[in-house]
């Protein structure tokens, strides 16, 4: 089901991005343009820089060379711009990173209240809306520790959505989950994709990629090696490294 983005406006743009950890270059000349409403799946071997790229997009990591534009605004060293951009970009982590001392509802209302300035009542209304969307409104009063991994990850998705982000980043959202919980999280993400959310998702869930991705990006050794629609990438990879990688994950 290939998706044609409604507009060709650019949500995220990377131009010649380079990044080093000390002398080690993690990102090499990344060029990428993500249209509004586009769904990108990023895959590649461990250590290839997928997380680093995603984390640069919401300013959790700094890049040293090149430009990153989010929603038309360039990420610079200016902390204020970083804050402004992070508000528009939601992120879901591999290990959920819910706040253990806050209830599910409070996890979802904290940032809207402190960052967006919503009243408690407004924030709770938004939170319940998204908790219903991810199908766990009945857990709102519990603490994260009382929830299963799959439920926690769905809460993490709802928590990010409560900030009404324009772009959602996912960094291996299902790889810390027990197999039986992967589907509930992927279903939530498929639903989100159906709403037209711009998504960049690091995942090795090939079924998900085939179902929702407009493009698959394959990274290796800090480079974007191949970029293609999922059907093309999985069935007919052009690059030798992509082929090796696919052979490995498909056993």
């Amino acid at each position: 089901m290939p998706h044609v983005p409604g507009t060709q406006e650019t949500a995220v743009k990377l131009v010649g991005v380079n990044k080093w950890y000390g002398k080690f270059q993690v990102l090499r000349n990344l060029n990428l343009s993500v249209a509004r409403g586009e769904r990108i799946v990023v895959c590649g071997p461990s250590g290839s820089g997928k997380s680093t790229m995603i984390r640069c997009i919401n300013g959790l990591e700094e890049h040293q060379e090149g430009r990153i534009l989010v929603d038309g605004t360039e990420l610079t060293d200016d902390g204020k711009i970083g804050d402004a951009i992070r508000r528009e970009v939601g992120m879901v982590f591999q290990h959920f990173n819910l706040f253990p001392h806050l209830t599910i509802l409070e996890n979802c209302t904290l940032a809207p209240m402190k960052v967006r300035g919503l009243s408690k009542a407004e924030a709770e209304e938004v939170a319940m809306h998204y908790l219903t969307r991810v199908r766990i409104p009945d857990q709102a009063g519990k603490y994260p520790g009382a929830l299963s991994g799959g439920q926690q990850q769905r809460v993490a998705i709802a928590r990010a959505l409560c900030m009404k982000p324009k772009i959602m980043l996912f960094d291996e959202p299902t790889s810390a989950l027990d197999p039986e919980m992967v589907k509930e999280v992927l279903d939530t993400m498929v639903g989100l994709a159906g709403d037209g959310m711009t998504m960049l998702c690091v995942t090795h869930e090939m079924g998900f990629a085939r179902q929702v991705a407009d493009r698959v990006i394959f990274m290796d050794k800090g480079e974007i090696v191949e970029e293609a629609p999922p059907a093309e990438f999985f069935d007919n990879p052009k690059n030798e490294r992509s082929r090796q990688f696919l052979a490995q994950i498909l056993h």
């Binding site: 959790l60 992070r86 508000r87 939601g90 290990h95 706040f99 904290l110 402190k114 960052v115």
Partner: peptide
């Protein structure tokens, strides 16, 4: 991850 989740939410 706690710091990152907070920062990612714009706090």
């Amino acid at each position: 991850g706690q710091y990152e989740a907070g920062a990612a939410l714009g706090l």
